[in-house]
Amino acid sequence: MLEVLRKLWFRDVKEETLFINDVAVRIRAGFLLAIPIFMSFTLYDAIFVSNWVVDGNTAVDSGDIDWDNHIIYHVDATRRVFDYTFQTYVLIYALLEMLSGMFVWSSRLSPIILISSFLARKQKPVWKPLVPKRFAWGLGSSFIIVCLIFFNPEVFAHWVNTVWGSNLLPTTENYMSPYIPLVLVWICLGFMWMETVLGFCVGCKIHSLLVLVGVFKEECEACNNIDWDEIARKNKVRLAEQEAQKKSE
């Protein structure tokens, strides 16, 4: 437990090139998977469910019919008012969680990183470089920021209008299409599912492509991820076999 508290999911916190345990990363992604699932239900309710609440007990036959011979009723209906305070808090936490894993000092502020590192302590670690993960989490952070703007359009509009000194964005209506955060939430859900279940990091693959075209530079992961203990064990076995062969001759 003390080792977990000291290193968390890092191979060595003093390394110049940081490596983290991908087993703990996948466990953490499994915990955080609950957030896009919750947000997908929230956005479905906001976009596809009727904004009107109808009281069926007040329905009164008007005596008229429409063009399709359907009876027209008079009812008492109220328009739903959406309060996204809780969703905002959840997204803020998710944003802080994404950012916290990028550095050693900030990782200690995340309870999920601590729990994930503890759960992965008895499994064989799979060391992966931190830099591609930082890019992936930065991509996820941008998705979260877009969703925060959708849930709080007036706050962002006031901020932008104050900076620009003009009414660039309206403060009485949502200027963002609801399908933008809906698509991003489903993309995020898919990415996190692949990370958790398949161990496939889409953000890391995008980062590797950017390295390939020269946008980023990084060291060779395969060279830095060599299992020297396993190599030493195989060499020891090979030398023992050679020694036994010499004696038999």
Rank of each mutant, 00 (worst) to 15 (best):
R80L: 12
A157E: 05
D83R: 12
G30S: 14
V4A: 13
S62W: 06
A59Y: 03
A77S: 14
V90I: 12
C204A: 09
L43I: 07
N69K: 14
D66M: 10
P125E: 10
A29F: 00
Q245W: 12
K122M: 05
A136F: 04
I72E: 08
P181C: 13
A244R: 14
S116N: 03
F150W: 10
E230D: 14
A222F: 03
I145D: 07
D83L: 13
S106P: 03
D61Y: 03
F151S: 04
R80W: 05
V202E: 00
L119P: 01
F118A: 13
V81C: 00
S116I: 00
I27G: 01
V163F: 11
L130D: 03
F150L: 04
T171Y: 02
Y179V: 11
M102H: 06
S117M: 01
M102V: 05
A29C: 06
T85Q: 10
P129C: 01
V215M: 04
C220H: 10
K236P: 04
S100E: 13
D55G: 03
V146M: 12
D229E: 14
Y89N: 08
N161F: 01
I206N: 08
T42E: 06
L189A: 10
K234N: 15
A94Y: 11
L95H: 06
P125F: 09
E16R: 07
L33K: 05
L189G: 03
W127R: 03
A46D: 07
G203L: 07
I35K: 02
L91I: 05
V213P: 00
S177M: 11
F82G: 05
L5S: 06
V160Q: 01
V202L: 11
L182T: 08
N161L: 05
C147A: 13
V75N: 11
F216D: 08
W9D: 02
C201V: 05
S106N: 09
I20G: 02
V197Y: 12
S142A: 14
V49A: 09
A240L: 15
V155S: 05
C204M: 13
T58G: 08
S166R: 15
Q242M: 15
T42W: 02
Y84T: 08
Q242S: 09
L169A: 07
D61N: 14
D22G: 03
V197K: 05
A232N: 15
I206M: 13
V49H: 10
S141Q: 11
D45L: 08
